[in-house]
């Protein structure tokens, strides 16, 4: 069903991307990419899009993150939760990522700037129904956000 939603309205599925999924009370994304670092980057871009978060023109800033989890799904939640924390506490958003994944741990360098605009906040990233699935073109997953 999710795949149908991805294809609807798209002439050709891009190798990586995200799309908002219908959800009664919260927000949800379908995300896909050729590999896990790509999936993490697309999930971040999708989450910022849901929040209508725009990277401003202020001075560029970098951050380095080291995260680990029990598996790839856990890592994905930790990654997005970290970005939410930075958005709320430092008003920062990022649009360039260098991510290295080893097992269920990651090292990432983020480049971004202060938020120019943020009108919608996500409370949390959930594990609801979270499963990263391999396919012919790489990896895909759906993510539900509490709002």
């Amino acid at each position: 069903m999710d795949t149908c939603i991805i294809l609807k309205g798209m002439k050709e599925k891009k190798p990586r991307g995200f799309i908002e999924l219908p959800n009664t009370a919260d927000w949800a994304l379908q995300v896909w990419a050729p590999d896990l670092p790509g999936l993490l980057a697309e999930a971040a871009a999708g989450m910022y899009a849901l929040m209508q978060a725009q990277v401003g023109e202020g001075p560029r800033q970098t951050r380095t993150l080291s995260l680990s989890g029990v598996d790839a799904e856990d890592l994905l939640v930790s990654w997005l939760a970290e970005l939410l924390y930075l958005a709320e506490t430092e008003a920062l958003a990022f649009d360039a990522f260098s991510i290295r994944v080893t097992g269920s741990a990651l090292e990432a360098e983020l480049s971004g700037a202060p938020l120019a605009h943020l009108t919608r906040m996500i409370k949390a990233v959930t594990y609801h129904g979270l499963a990263i699935r391999p396919g012919e073109d790489g990896l895909s997953t759906s993510i539900v956000f509490d709002v």
């Binding site: 029990v70 856990d74 924390y85 409370k123 949390a124 594990y127 609801h128 979270l130 509490d146």
Partner: peptide
């Protein structure tokens, strides 16, 4: 944000607890 962070922290940390206590769940949330 106080409560959001508390829940986020414990939903993440208890991912290991369910393994420790051998609890089978149909949904990780």
């Amino acid at each position: 944000g106080f409560g959001h962070q508390v829940c986020t922290d414990y939903v993440q940390s208890l991912q290991r607890a369910v393994q420790k206590y051998g609890i089978q769940l149909p949904d990780r949330e």
